[in-house]
Amino acid sequence: MASPPGSLVIKSILRQDWLGLLLVVVLAIAGLALSQPNFLSSFNIYVLLLGFSLSVLIALAQMVIIAIGQMNLSVGAIGGLAAISFAGLMEVVGLPVPLAALAGLAIGILCGCLNGWITHTTGLSAFIITLATLSIFKGLNLGITEAQPFYDIAPAVKAFGNARMGPIPVMLVAPVIAIIAVWVLMNRTVLGRQMLAVGGNPNAAELSGISIRRAVVAAHAISGLLAALAGMLAVARLQLGQPTIGDDWLIISFAAPVIGGAVLAGGHVSVIGTCLGVVIVTLINNALVLYGIDPFFVQLLLGALILAAVGINRYHEVQEQARRFA
């Protein structure tokens, strides 16, 4: 404890789980930049950031649920439902954009609350509950739209989806705010700490007077909010209210937090790690395109990355145990 504060800061940075990931990201960027001149073009950076914007919201929506030691299969279904509600309310009801957006977010929160409330009251695994609600939300989505997109998107939304400042898409604002908010939530607020405590050791959390119901419902509500935000961003980007929005979010939602070092048993998540996980996935996607490799390859790589991340986590655990017994 005698060391000067400066070295303490460096030490605490060195101890972060995400340092290795950062290194991987830096190396990947350097490698791509050197081998592919197009990589650093303004347009390519724009494409990268667009991909990042959406994926990071999806990943955070799953991460807050991993924090409480559960899982949420319905992230995509909530996103899709919010997306078509947002588009439908504008096209059919003629709601102004801000109101439609608020309604979309409210639907996300509502769906999340429902997930949290049912999980907590029944005491059943969130897996089976969110599998059921996944199909309910998706069924609602398809029932309303009959699988037809809403084409009539307000010009303001379309403009927002297309707007860019040089290489930076304007819609990056939403995920950046979300990242900061979730980081503050998880690291600085009482609610966030209580959520992590519930994920880490539910018995201890309860003995410490933490309301498990409140933590669980809050986490699911936040997850729903983030999923809804992602869904509406997808509408802006696609320029239409596509009912299939969210169908392919499952893998990425788990991949990024797991690559970022989240412990699936709950109690530990890393917002920065999750963001870096999304960056890695986005870079892989981009690299496949730049090198002209079959884009379906990404599916295979994502799965392999999840396995590798879990394997590395496991390896660290074993090492840690060995250290303790030594």
Binding site: V184, R188, T189, V190, L191, R193, L196, A197, G200, N201, N203, A204, A205, L207, S208, G209, I210, V263, G267, H268
Partner: peptide
């Protein structure tokens, strides 16, 4: 007899978990 600590939290946060000193929801 059972262990009742949150292993990823700091010692301080564990000790104070019952009533985390906070201002407007921020620890």
């Amino acid at each position: 007899q059972e262990r009742n600590l949150i292993s990823r939290f700091s010692i301080g946060e564990n000790i104070m978990l019952e009533r985390l000193p906070a201002q407007r929801g921020f620890v």
